[in-house]
Design a protein around this nucleic acid. Structure first.
Length: 189
DNA sequence: TGGCAGATTTTA
DNA sequence: AAAATCTGCCAA
């Protein structure tokens, strides 16, 4: 949910990816058999695909701070990506929000996206931040309080798909991407 | 200090 | 398929 001067936009999270840190950290996920091997690998090798893998920088500093804060960075020179820090201070984990199903403020999302069509307004990490009006100005913000915050809500029925993270070349085998199976607003491959 | 790869999206 | 275009990282 983002309450901006332009209006409010709300989305239901339908796709995320998990990122961990350097070797020896404490990777934590819901207990699933297929994750046991992956988490053991991360404990030993760290997560080379994570921005925090090589230690703190000006860009990734939020990942090393307390959980529940926005980590927003620029990718490929033009798109911004929104993450939430999830590890305890010093444990640089984060979850990338890859796609939302619009719930409210669709007109504003369309305006921000510069499109007329009602569908697929936030089906990708860059499209998501554009639609929600999230920029690097939100980097470090507490995501538990307005204007930009996460709120508990009813979860859509359906299985949660699990697979490799998109666009990742290092540690490409790790199954840390999650999506609502069958949801039309998941990003396409 | 230069070169390049990168958690992407859009257009030809 | 390829451009747009910024950052962090590593080599020199």
């Amino acid at each position: 949910m983002h309450e901006s001067p332009q209006g409010a936009t709300v989305g239901r999270v339908v796709e995320t990816e998990a990122y961990f840190g350097p070797p020896g950290a404490n990777p934590t996920l819901a207990r699933r058999a297929r994750h046991d091997a992956a988490l053991a690998w991360v404990r030993a090798n760290g997560d080379p695909a994570s921005h925090s893998f090589r230690g703190p920088t000006r860009r990734n500093g939020v990942m090393f701070g307390p959980p529940g804060h926005a980590y927003v960075y620029l990718i490929y020179g033009l798109n911004e990506c929104l993450n939430v820090s999830t590890g305890a201070p010093g444990d640089p984990q984060a979850v990338l929000f890859r796609a939302l199903a619009p719930v409210a403020g669709e007109e504003l999302m369309q305006k921000r996206r510069g499109v007329a069509g009602p569908r697929r307004l936030a089906s990708g990490p860059g499209k998501l931040t554009t639609a929600m009006g999230v920029t690097r100005a939100h980097d470090g913000r507490d995501l538990t309080t307005p204007p930009l915050y996460l709120a508990a809500g009813a979860r859509r029925r359906g299985r949660i798909g699990v697979g490799p993270r998109v666009g990742v070349t290092r540690a490409a085998h790790l199954p840390f991407r999650y999506w609502i199976e069958g949801d039309a607003h998941v990003s396409r491959r």
